[in-house]
Deep mutational scan, measured.
Amino acid sequence: MDALKSAGRALIRSPSLAKQSWGGGGRHRKLPENWTDTRETLLEGMLFSLKYLGMTLVEQPKGEELSAAAIKRIVATAKASGKKLQKVTLKVSPRGIILTDNLTNQLIENVSIYRISYCTADKMHDKVFAYIAQSQHNQSLECHAFLCTKRKMAQAVTLTVAQAFKVAFEFWQVSKEEKEKRDKASQEGGDVLGARQDCTPPLKSLVATGNLLDLEETAKAPLSTVSANTTNMDEVPRPQALSGSSVVWELDDGLDEAFSRLAQSRTNPQVLDTGLTAQDMHYAQCLSPVDWDKPDSSGTEQDDLFSF
């Protein structure tokens, strides 16, 4: 819950932080000083300027060897085509990944977070970031790969997607708890209302004896509580940590079903599988986004697919 609360507080303090972009060759504004600060901008989305290598189908939802083989196929196909790589912007948030063309600003792909089953910074092609997700059109699994400016960037994108998945799962947990509370309150309110109706004398007997209905007592009954809980029953509950912020979080049926399955089948359902080692994760978390744009010590960066 700490990640969720800190993310909400950060967004309320400075929503404009989320509009910064990394990996864009110096076009961005001043960047936060450390990885923790940038992680807090996830709610509205972190932007990464990358190059799209392509996509291939895979048979399993996750796995280092599986993704490595898929990336190898994608890279080989991209090299064989001889075409310049498409420059894209990857927007990562707890909602998922939005992929747009840098030149036309046209939407290429919009992947809900619950469809993503794996992401990684490839070991062999260490400047490549990739994720595996279920197609929104059918049940097939797709591996999408992107060329980053350097290994640090690939690791940073991988960690960002993993963190977005974690925050999304926490949102789901909060929403589920809130819905259970509202359902319980609604049920209790309905029981109270039913009890009051059972003990209320029939209207005919009131008229016969000349008694008047006590409207004041009726007004004191917990009807307002019942209506408050039943009027918006169809509205999706939102985490309290975000009250007053500009973010509107809505959970669709697909996300609810997917996270429910994860909660039942996995020990740590909030953790998205990645190909990063503990050492890689520690190294990337210690980086400032400013470091992502620094040239690798191995030599001059080449803006070309064939540089790796």
Rank of each mutant, 00 (worst) to 15 (best):
G54C: 00
V226P: 08
Q173E: 15
D253T: 13
S245C: 11
Q106S: 10
D101L: 13
S298M: 13
D273G: 04
A78F: 08
D304F: 07
Q20S: 12
L90K: 00
K79E: 06
S93Y: 15
P15H: 15
K5V: 11
L99H: 13
K72D: 06
Q279A: 07
I12W: 12
V207S: 09
G8N: 12
D273T: 07
S16T: 06
Q155M: 13
L53E: 00
K79I: 04
R196V: 05
E216L: 04
E33Q: 13
V161R: 00
L305E: 09
L242R: 08
D296F: 03
K220W: 02
S67W: 01
T77S: 07
S21I: 01
T218A: 11
S117G: 06
V207C: 09
V248C: 10
T38Q: 13
D304H: 07
P94C: 07
P222V: 07
N110I: 04
L90M: 10
T149E: 08
V58A: 03
T300K: 11
N105Q: 13
D234M: 03
F146E: 00
A258F: 02
A70K: 01
L242E: 15
P237C: 09
I116R: 00
A78S: 15
T225Q: 14
E178V: 12
Y131M: 11
K150A: 06
A18F: 10
L43V: 14
K91V: 07
D126Y: 00
E216W: 02
L223M: 11
L251G: 06
R13T: 13
Q106N: 05
N232P: 11
G54A: 00
A263E: 07
A70F: 01
K204M: 05
K294H: 07
L159Y: 11
L287M: 11
S16M: 14
S260A: 04
K83Y: 04
E301W: 04
L276M: 14
D198L: 06
L42P: 11
D2Q: 02
R29Y: 10
Q285Y: 04
S6F: 14
S21P: 11
D191K: 02
I116E: 00
L213A: 07
T120E: 01
D198M: 05
G63V: 10
W22A: 01
A80V: 12
E40R: 13
D253F: 02
A133K: 04
A7L: 01
A241F: 10
S288V: 10
L242T: 09
K152A: 10
L255C: 07
T231V: 05
K179G: 15
N110K: 08
K150P: 01
K123V: 07
S117D: 02
L212C: 10
K166W: 12
A278M: 09
Q136V: 13
R196K: 11
T100L: 07
G8P: 13
E180P: 08
K19N: 11
G190R: 06
N268L: 03
E170G: 05
F165N: 03
V174R: 05
D293V: 06
E142N: 10
G254M: 03
G63I: 05
D252I: 05
A133N: 09
L31H: 12
Q173G: 03
G45K: 01
F306G: 03
P237V: 07
A3E: 11
F169C: 03
H282Y: 09
V88I: 02
S140N: 13
G189L: 01
Q86R: 03
G23W: 14
G275R: 02
Q173S: 15
F146V: 01
T77P: 09
F306P: 01
H282I: 14
T160G: 13
G26V: 09
G8D: 09
F306V: 00
Q285A: 13
K83L: 13
Q163W: 10
A208E: 07
D304I: 09
I108Y: 14
V58R: 00
T100W: 05
K19P: 11
N232A: 05
E109S: 11
L251E: 09
D291L: 09
M153I: 10
M281W: 08
I108D: 00
C199Q: 15
E217C: 03
S117M: 15
I74P: 01
L255G: 04
E180Y: 13
I132R: 00
L50Q: 01
T100D: 05
S140R: 11
G244T: 04
S205K: 07
L107I: 05
P201A: 14
F146W: 13
R29N: 11
R9L: 15
G63W: 01
C119I: 02
L305A: 07
F259E: 03
L107D: 02
G254A: 11
E109K: 07
E170S: 06
S93E: 07
G54Q: 00
Q285M: 09
L206P: 07
P295S: 02
F146G: 00
G275I: 03
